[in-house]
């Protein structure tokens, strides 16, 4: 086990940020912690990076206890906080050199590890970090977090506020890194990134809702999800909001996703009901649930 979290809780004044969380992450796993803002992701990350003390419970990262062995632990992890935390007034190269120096290493020593990432920003190495685009900042931050070849890499919401192109590139980089003997623990508020992880944990209001591989989570989901397209999403939402068998009913882009409160039902019934209420162009279709459907269902419970 690369990461072992046992019954961790943490409160700030009267806010319970993290409630009795237990988790295990295997060696070289790409593990995703998925949940919205305020779910407790950052607090958990800080506890694991030995930046915060838990109120109760214990955790072990790469074999080091986060409380007792924090000095050794800090040498063996890479940590990239949610906010861009490098020195904006230092150049790309100066930032990287600085972080290499304070970790007792130099760029050459681990260049192999960061090469794929750093090569993309190397042309701008004389530019100040503050003048980089969001995607490039993120690559620099990742290079800095990797410069000492950590065993476990903590990435707290690395893709928040980054455009889709950079997001995709970032996940490709993580996949490559994983092959280089690094365990990656990443958090994200984007449900669509779940499928890119080996295993995921849903977190909401400080609690873990479910842990599994993305495909198993989808496969084991008990409810049926109906995708509905109509001429007016807004009106359909209102109609279904009053429908007696509606379990849940959410807009999903151009369509809406509906779950029924009965175990067994005919989707065409719903189509008929909508048409009776004066909605046109109704198409209903049984679909494979999306990660977001499942998250919403789990967080309702």
């Amino acid at each position: 086990m690369s990461l072992h979290i046992n019954n961790i809780s943490k409160s700030f004044k009267d806010l319970k940020a993290v409630k009795h969380i237990s988790l295990e992450v295997k060696e070289n796993e790409l593990f995703g912690l998925i949940g919205p803002d305020g779910a407790g992701k950052t607090t958990l990350f800080r506890i694991l990076a030995s930046l915060l003390l838990p109120d109760e419970g214990s955790a072990n990262v790469a074999g080091f206890d986060v409380i007792k062995d924090y000095k050794k632990l800090r040498k063996n992890i890479g940590y990239m906080p949610g906010k861009f935390s490098l020195y904006q007034d230092l150049t790309v190269e100066e930032n990287l050199n600085f972080f290499a120096t304070i970790f007792d290493t130099n760029i050459e020593e681990n260049y192999d590890l960061i090469k794929d990432i750093y090569i993309q920003i190397e042309p701008f190495k004389k530019r100040k970090a503050g003048d980089l685009s969001g995607g490039m900042k993120q690559k620099l931050a990742l290079s800095c977090a990797l410069i000492h070849k950590p065993k476990v890499l903590f990435l707290d919401e690395p893709t928040t506020g980054v455009d889709p192109v950079s997001r995709k590139e970032f996940w490709d980089m993580l996949k490559k890194l994983q092959k280089k003997d690094i365990t990656i623990f990443v958090s994200t508020p984007y449900m669509d990134e779940a499928a890119l992880c080996d295993r995921i944990a849903f977190i909401n209001q400080g609690e873990i809702l479910q842990v599994d591989t993305p495909s198993a989570i989808v496969k084991n989901f008990a409810k049926e999800v109906i995708n509905i397209r109509t001429n007016s999403i807004y009106k359909s939402l209102q109609v279904l909001g009053k429908y007696q068998y509606t379990h849940s009913n959410y807009p999903f882009g151009e369509s809406l996703h509906y779950m029924d409160s009965r175990d067994d039902f005919d989707p065409n019934e719903i189509k008929k009901h909508l048409e009776d209420e004066g909605i046109e162009d109704v198409e209903v279709q049984l679909i494979t649930p999306e990660i977001e459907d499942i998250f919403m269902e789990l967080s309702r419970e």
């Binding site: 803002d37 939402l237 959410y250 807009p251």
Partner: peptide, 21 residues
């Protein structure tokens, strides 16, 4: 609605639909 939890985000969009309507 960046970063908001999925349920709240949908409630928000319902408000937007209502205003547009």
């Amino acid at each position: 609605t960046g970063g908001v939890d999925p349920v709240t985000r949908r409630q928000f969009w319902e408000l937007i639909y209502e205003a547009a309507n």
